Computed example of a mutant assay.
Amino acid sequence: MLAPVIVGVDGSAESLAAAEWAAGEAGRRGRALRLVHVRNWTPRSAEGERTGAVQRHLGRQVLRRAEERVREACPGVRIHDEQQEGPATQALLRAAEQADVLVLGSRGLSGLTGFLVGSVALGVVARATRPVVLVRAPAETPDEHPPARDGNDPAPTAHGDVVLGIDLDEACDEVIEFAFEAAGLRGARLRVVHAWQTPSPLSLGPGEIGLIDETRRAEEWQGFLSAVLQVWRDKYPEIEVTETVAEGRAQSVLVRAATGASLLVVGHRLAERPLGPRTGPVTHAAIRHVGCPVAVVPHD
């Protein structure tokens, strides 16, 4: 049986938007949709049991509202729902192991409403071994300001494009393939973006690309990007692909490039870090500032 698209719902506007997006994705992928609500409850006493009954009732209401939203938007999708006991991060990570894609609501890092934002969403993204998509509610929060645009940043992408942020130092098949498949499912153009920065003299090794002038350096990066993508162009000849290399901080370049996109795809390395699993700076910036859904694809 095909793994379902799973979405976490908590009754917030963001999780309802995530449920609707997940339903559309389930339809595109030909998969069932599973709605999951997590209760942070541990039975300790008779009073705890009564509290648990109330939470189960509230959970059923949350799931019912999400199902109504989904059926209105995508009446043909197959829906299952379930409640799980928390903590939320661990429950959602368990759900992710059974998912084709896990979808969560997000308000970036400026809002704390609902369990699907803030530390929980970041904890799931940092540890999940399956792709996680973060979806915002349509209205943007007023206190968020994207990074200032660098002079060499690419112009905002056309509406509906899938944008792939690629690090050519560690271009990963899992991330690239997810982006090509996402573009194919949507009949959309795929825009691949790589950001590079002029290295300092102290960071250069013998024969490195930084020894040439800026124009030549940009051309070298462009050629490298084209070479990396050629095998994927051959595999997905029906997909229109554009390639952009831009000088600047990857965070700024990618956030600006994703303006107006239908989906941004970034990778996340699962390697252990000294302070434990966490998101990298590019993923962190995308979650905080990008308005379109952000797919975080794990890789080794």
Rank of each mutant, 00 (worst) to 15 (best):
M1D: 15
V5L: 10
V5W: 01
V7G: 10
V9W: 01
V9A: 10
D10G: 12
A13D: 13
E14L: 06
L16W: 03
L16R: 05
A17M: 04
A18D: 03
E20Q: 12
A22N: 07
A23L: 08
A26T: 03
G30V: 11
R31P: 05
L35F: 11
V38C: 09
N40D: 15
T42D: 12
P43N: 06
P43I: 10
P43D: 11
T51M: 13
A53Y: 06
R56L: 15
R64A: 15
A66K: 00
C74E: 13
V77M: 09
D81P: 07
Q83F: 07
Q83C: 12
P87L: 08
Q90F: 13
R94Y: 12
A95T: 02
A96C: 12
V103Y: 04
L104S: 08
R107Q: 13
G108D: 00
G111C: 09
L112R: 09
T113R: 07
T113K: 13
V117N: 04
L122E: 07
L122F: 09
R127F: 09
V133M: 06
P138D: 06
P142D: 05
D143E: 13
E144C: 13
D150K: 03
G151L: 12
A155Q: 11
P156E: 02
T157P: 03
H159E: 14
G160P: 00
G160T: 00
V162W: 01
L164V: 02
L164F: 00
D169N: 10
V175C: 08
V175R: 00
F178G: 05
A182V: 03
A183M: 02
R186H: 10
A188Y: 01
R189Q: 08
A195T: 04
L202W: 12
G210W: 01
L211S: 15
L211R: 09
T215N: 11
A218W: 04
E220V: 15
W221T: 07
F224V: 14
A227R: 02
L229Y: 02
W232D: 01
R233N: 04
D234G: 04
D234T: 03
E238L: 05
E243G: 09
T244F: 09
V245N: 02
Q251C: 14
Q251A: 15
V253K: 03
L254W: 00
V255T: 12
A257G: 10
G260M: 02
S262T: 06
L263C: 10
R269D: 12
L270F: 11
A271H: 14
A271G: 14
L275S: 13
R278G: 11
V282S: 12
H284Q: 13
I287F: 06
I287V: 13
R288E: 13
V290M: 01
V294S: 09
V296M: 10
H299F: 11
D300H: 11
